[in-house]
């Protein structure tokens, strides 16, 4: 059994792809190429930092009924579904607030990307997103962003692509959001560390993934993508209810779910909403496990706790 790994820079972060297979390196390379090609296509289509992305074109036509590709249609539909499911704790319309708070360029390579200014627009409720058969419309003074869902959604697509590739196990990481399945080189379940919010070199918890099913893990919080604007600190976690950086005691929230999209969304929703909604989603089976880190330390919430 061989373990292959490739590191790549995309989506403003580090992409780590790892597979375990009996096949040779050429086979692994062809799989990695396929995955990276898909990541590039996704970024090209949905990045808000690109002038030529479908998302930017869509935002430019805000207020008008706009034809969308099937892929965009699916992502819009998913975004709307999750916004409703989280009662607005996830909202794809927070982009103007995010930019007003200071997060304007792609991170960590601001020089590589374009800043398209949406600060004059407003955060609106998810009801304002109209989706038709092959078109969609957002209010004229709003702008969409898939930053809160894109990585998880893409992770699911990538994992689906590995289904028939003769792979014994894999873990894929898009900037810290992880999806994994199968076993490691020693035939053991994957063990995923949870980074310490206060000391990035340490882990506070190790999640043992079930090997017979897909496991997705995502972390959200206020410890990264932060800065200072006009003398005031900001971070990228915007509370859609206030349109401002979330006022939360939680440094990071890590969730374990059945899909990458679930994990991406619920990590943010828990980081903003806190323990109460987290318990509700755990009881409903949408989150398998949740680890909250505050200044007082880490706490794990599981079903029944």
């Amino acid at each position: 059994m061989n373990c292959y790994q490739r590191e790549h820079k995309a989506l403003g972060s580090t992409v780590l792809l790892t597979i375990v297979t009996t096949e040779n390196a050429a086979h692994a390379a062809s799989i990695f190429d396929l995955l990276i090609e898909r990541i590039a296509a996704f970024e090209h289509q949905f990045s808000r930092f690109r002038e030529d992305s479908e998302l930017t074109a869509f935002n430019r036509r805000a207020g008008k009924r706009t034809a969308v590709t099937p892929a965009m249609h699916q992502l819009l539909t998913a975004a709307k579904t999750y916004a409703e499911r989280t009662h607005g704790l996830y909202n794809p319309f927070i982009l103007p607030a995010l930019q007003r708070a200071g997060y304007r360029s792609s991170w960590p390579s601001p020089q590589d990307t374009t800043t398209i200014d949406y600060t004059e627009r407003h955060v609106v409720r998810i009801d304002a997103l109209q989706i038709g058969d092959s078109w969609a419309r957002i209010p004229a003074d709003s702008a969409l962003d898939f930053g809160g869902i894109g990585k998880g959604y893409l992770l699911d697509e990538l994992a689906d692509m590995l289904a028939d590739k003769n792979i014994a196990g894999y873990w894929l990481s898009l900037g810290g959001d992880i999806v994994c399945a199968g076993q490691d080189m020693d035939g053991q379940p994957w063990k995923i560390g949870v980074q310490d919010a206060s000391d990035p070199g340490r882990t506070v918890h190790t999640i043992v993934a079930a090997s017979n099913t897909r496991t997705a893990i995502a972390t959200s919080g206020v410890t990264k993508r932060k800065g200072e604007q006009w003398g005031r600190p900001w971070h990228h976690l915007i509370d859609p209810r206030t349109g401002k950086p979330a006022d939360t005691a939680i440094l990071t929230a890590t969730v374990v779910c059945a899909s990458g999209t679930d994990a991406d969304i619920y990590a943010k929703a828990v980081a903003i909403g806190g323990e109460v909604p987290a318990k509700k989603w755990i009881q409903a089976g949408q989150i398998r496990l949740c680890i909250l880190q505050t200044v007082d330390g880490a706490r794990t919430i599981e079903g029944g706790s």
């Binding site: 900037g175 810290g176 959001d177 995923i192 980074q195 995502a218 972390t219 410890t223 990264k224 990590a267």
Partner: peptide, 12 residues
């Protein structure tokens, strides 16, 4: 060959 990196979740 690169050093194997362990899976670790962090703020994305």
């Amino acid at each position: 060959p690169m050093m194997y990196q362990q899976p670790m979740t962090s703020v994305s």
